[in-house]
Design a protein around this nucleic acid. Sequence first.
DNA 1: CTGAGTCATTCTGTTCGCTAAGT
DNA 2: CACTTAGCGAACAGAATGACTCA
Length: 591
Amino acid sequence: MEYMLILNPLVHNRDNNKNAGLFCNVCLCLPLFLRWEEEKCTDGSKWRFLEHKGPVFPPPYEPLPDRVRFHYDGKAMKLSPGAEEVATFYAKMLDHEYTTKDIFRKNFFKDWRKEMTSEEKSKITELKKCDFTEMHEYFKAQSEARKQMSKEEKQKIKEENERILQEYGYCVMDNHRERIGNFRIEPPGLFRGRGDHPKMGKLKRRIRPEDIIINCSKDSVHPKAPPGTRWKEVRHDNKVTWLVSWTEKIQGSIKYIMLNPSSRIKGEKDWQKYETARRLKKIVERIRAQYREDWRSKEMRIRQRAVALYFIDKLALRAGNEKDEGETADTVGCCSLRVEHIRLHPQMDGQDYVVELDFPGKDSIRYYNKVSVEKRVFKNLQLFLENKQAKDDLFDRLNTSILNKHLQELMDGLTAKVFRTYNASITLQQQLKELTSCESKILSYNRANRAVAVLCNHQRAPPKTFEKSMHNLQTKIDEKKKQLSAAKKELKAAKADAKTLRDEKSKRVVETKKKAVQRISEQLMKLEVQATDREENKQIALGTSKLNYLDPRISVAWCKKLGVPIEKIYNKTQREKFAWAIDMTDEDFEF
DNA sequence: CTGAGTCATTCTGTTCGCTAAGT
DNA sequence: CACTTAGCGAACAGAATGACTCA
């Protein structure tokens, strides 16, 4: 019965969408949906009907005007269109740090040479003799010109984008017109790997229709390939959710076009994720008891598994799959931690059994934490480290598939990442309960959100304008303080006047002055709250946890309970993504 | 000349698209 | 192989500021 309560809003919500009326009516959808629900369990199909217009390709390359020249070894040189296009990719990045990195430059140059004519190849032999500045200046001027366009021109472009969005940005899946997430093919350019990526700077070549696989239902109108081209393949696989795919040649991985998070298929998966996390909640204490027990196991692999799981649970670490060395940046997660990433301190800062973790995580974001652990964990870690070198695995008898297999036995659908979801959501719920007493509700919410972001290590580079904007805010606060003391002085004077004059008029003046003082001090408070919030948020990214780890029903229930408008917490896209939760949740929802 | 009002421009913070990197 | 999670930066929107008009 529960799923009906949940799915209903998902269906009805589309009635609010101006385009939905065509495809959605309650009489049709509800029975269809339920039937679909039943079938899904048995045969794993994700949809029954799927129709779309295919991807949008980036515009073809436009050669540079002749006045924009490339120089080699001080001399101007006209490049062939193929070589020129690749050169522009580099020229556009000239003031980016990437172009100072050796690997980037080396990879770029190697791939660039492949695009050159034999004549160019023999002339252009050293990157450091290449001068792209004219090209760089040209693109800077172009983007400047784009900014300077008139209102009408900008409006025209906007309308054209909207037209493309309406034509290619939606598909029909099972009676619903659904928004597609990324319907544009990635344009060619230079690969921007994160961290010390060995492939950074390599050429990402242009994707052609012949590289594209289309997925849609047999009984739909298939998308047409652009004139004079054909698709690589048109298939009809309703066991998957993607509409378009192609192989990316740098890592050899497959890229997909899929639906927007507001779609039924994504929303339901999201809901399912949180339901799995809630099932974990019911048995987490039992699992904890078990892994604590396993710390004493006589089998090394079980001890390692138990300690790793403790880290995943306590520190919300990622699972840590193994990666191909030399193909990707060197990053690790829990199972792939190495000896060099961990330090043991029997005593530190007045605490016992301190573990110091320092490693590059996903996206090469540094994870640094010192945490006091239980004695048994500490002793086990000492044992795991015995006779090992810096580059050796900490958990040499463990990997993610072993760990996840174990977890699967403890609960259906349980994997390492469910712990992250569970701990993030439960932390938010707890923090909201604890913090909501203090002054500003939004500040409390952000603080709770922040506690989760810290737990999950969601960092960001401090915004480029952080110092300045903080300074501006401080100036505002100082001004407001002056204003306040001035207003207070006036109030005092008015009071004195009223005392001597004792007439109606001066009494009224006192009242207005009182109100002014109140208003100004409220404004001051607001500014100070804003300053605290911003300072605390300097290096923390709240968005990731909000979007991916926090059960939206917790936030919705909190808003309802405290009378906070949902718009204060979720912006438009977030409200679209979490429509299912906004509709179904009442104020006493418990995660 | 002044000050209110209007409109354009710039500045600033937020949103969202992009696509890499995880599970 | 398919799908979720992630930070960056361009685009956008709204606020602040400036230029200008006119009573």
